[in-house]
Design a protein around this nucleic acid. Sequence first.
DNA 1: GGCCCTCTTTAGGGCCTT
Length: 327
Amino acid sequence: MRIAMCFSHFQLPRCQIHTLYGSWWKKVNNLSKKQENVSNYQLLCPGGWDSRRWIQKSLSTGAEGKNVSSRKATNLSHKVNDVSSLTHSNLNTSSVEIEEFKSVHIEQKTSDNKDISKCTTVIVFDIETTGFSRENDRIIEIALQDLSGGVNSTFQTLVNPDMIVTNQQIHGISTYMVNKSGVPRMKDLIPILVRYVRSRQKPGGQTLLIAHNGKTFDVPFLISEFNRCSYEIPSDWHFVDSMSPARELMKAEGSTLSSKSLQTLREYYKIPQTGKAHRAMADVSILALVLQKMTRDLKLTIPGLLENYSFTASEISNNSKKKKNSK
DNA sequence: GGCCCTCTTTAGGGCCTT
């Protein structure tokens, strides 16, 4: 009931949660089984996959766009207030303000890698935007996938940018699709997004969010949007740019791998294109599969990713400020 | 815009993200 109040406050009448176990999830499931992906994920998840990982329920604002026809929304009548029964119990929505998160410093964690792996939530995410400029462009779509799987392991939504979309040819997202009532604006979405991520966190654990080219695009863009809406990225969100391990892979593979782009990595690992490239959820599902292959090849674990590749939003912000001041 | 590589660091160019 408190959730309902929250969304009422946000004025998101079309925010909905529904079962997305349509052909998309089936494809991913079948694809993963065919490609022996399930066991490979154990590199990222030394404790092994949770048996719930292929349970097929996802979270969406209901504004994921018409182009995602393969993900048939089979239960649109489920309202957002049902989220309390479908996600973890800590979706406290009595206040629209984001609580100060308890920081979990990597260096304070136990040296036992298994414990780190068990308490770390790994989420792959991707954004689509109206362009490359963090100052002038806006996010128009965001998608996340918790690699531990289970109920509501994915989250996706279109975002109303309050501006004309001029790069529809890239992602297929039109002005008409996002500039209308029912599609949440970023300022309304951020609290929902933060609560979703929190709902995926393990008790006392930390979150590792992975995006391709995230260090120079997705994360700075996200920081910019949070700041524009007077929010801050939670301090216990750690990020990894999958481009970094991709560079290592390129060094190891030499000319076999010609580029570190997501599409090249997808082709390298013979992962079929599911959905339209440059739609957020399609790219997330590809990156999730690329990651499992890449971490296997590089023998990377979650502690390894945290130690060698992770960064925080504050580090990105501080670096940006230093560079501005030095100019 | 930022990272990385190299024909480099007193620099320039390619890549990657939408």
